[in-house]
Design a protein around this nucleic acid. Sequence first.
DNA 1: AAACCTATCGTACCGATGGCCTAGATGGCC
DNA 2: GGCCATCTAGGCCATCGGTACGATAGGTTT
Lengths: 204, 204
Amino acid sequence: MEKTLFVVRGEETLPRWQAAFPEGEHGTVEQARSSIGSGDLVWVSERVDEWPTLVRQWSQRGAAVVVLSYRPSQAQGLEALEAGARGYVHALANVEVLRQAATVVTHQGLWVGPELLSRVVGSSFRAMGGAPRASREWLERLTERERAVALAVADGQSNKEVARRLAISDRTVKSHLSAIFRKLEVRDRMQLVLRLSQSETVDS
Amino acid sequence: MEKTLFVVRGEETLPRWQAAFPEGEHGTVEQARSSIGSGDLVWVSERVDEWPTLVRQWSQRGAAVVVLSYRPSQAQGLEALEAGARGYVHALANVEVLRQAATVVTHQGLWVGPELLSRVVGSSFRAMGGAPRASREWLERLTERERAVALAVADGQSNKEVARRLAISDRTVKSHLSAIFRKLEVRDRMQLVLRLSQSETVDS
DNA sequence: AAACCTATCGTACCGATGGCCTAGATGGCC
DNA sequence: GGCCATCTAGGCCATCGGTACGATAGGTTT
């Protein structure tokens, strides 16, 4: 019954997970599927396919489920909580944080990062020791024209719409965008939007 | 935890509170106001006037604040959490529950009680939106599967990545997306992500 | 003058995206 | 049994998005 196990994909298990829970078992979904019951502490990697479904099943069985994410986001965190997870932790969190989260969730508490917490309950959690996020300094790295393009794109506009707004060709918009992606190290406009909307809420 | 104290109105203190924390101090707002600092565990009765303001102050100072309510409700619970409280417990909870809550909140967890947890989590979307009704409404218009796709896409993932996560074909992802766009009346994933991030980040 | 940055526009290429259509399987409801 | 919603998946096709590899022109720095 009261056992700790990590559900991962392949050989994903990290040393720090074992360090935090030497007694914990590690395995894939197939190995874990049937053995999980009430009172168990289950860590599920976001790399596991269909983790929301699994979280739903296991939490309904009474297990305390924590989702390990490599790229935490509000949307994913809410997805985890909605599925019944009691915790949402960065997969690379240190041993102390993992143990702390374990303590909390096994005591019927909710463990989420300060950032997500602020989304869940409002903005006032920012002042509670949550590390202040990076500012929009990275926008300074862009030229004036690139910044205009970035903001327009982050507004949800297509390349053609941006071109019309700035009175330039859509080819030029693409050129600027390539430069933007390279400088900000994002892969596409979607990541740009996410990054911009994140830093915007922190500043305001 | 530095010290434990109960902030009450008059002589409200219950025996079970003292049983759970024999070392805890009990007093009114005037007595407690200045002595609360980082690391303290503070229990605040809902009978204390202007408790949300006090919760906000003390939680910003780094104290772990738990609100004791005689008439727990979803609205009040959210108000407490929004003010920065880490816990929301029934004032008549038994000793075990009180100690459990203390364990959780002093470990940076969130304690809202098993019976209220589902409601708090379920309402988190509403709690985050500037236009609560609207955001909840359009999310509810989606099926469960569509919601999962929408959240994943709003996280910046490509169709293929979503397909991998949900263990379905990318054709199916596109099918779901078409339904999502039609239902939510957005033209593409960019508008979807904007709408989601807006309702997620607007402070109210 | 040479080097460099910036803004502009072009072609070509290719994967990603989204609309429109069909359709099997499932399960709930009348 | 019929009806309907949902999830799944495929084909077809037009468009969009992003990169590679340019080119030209104006400005600044060295």
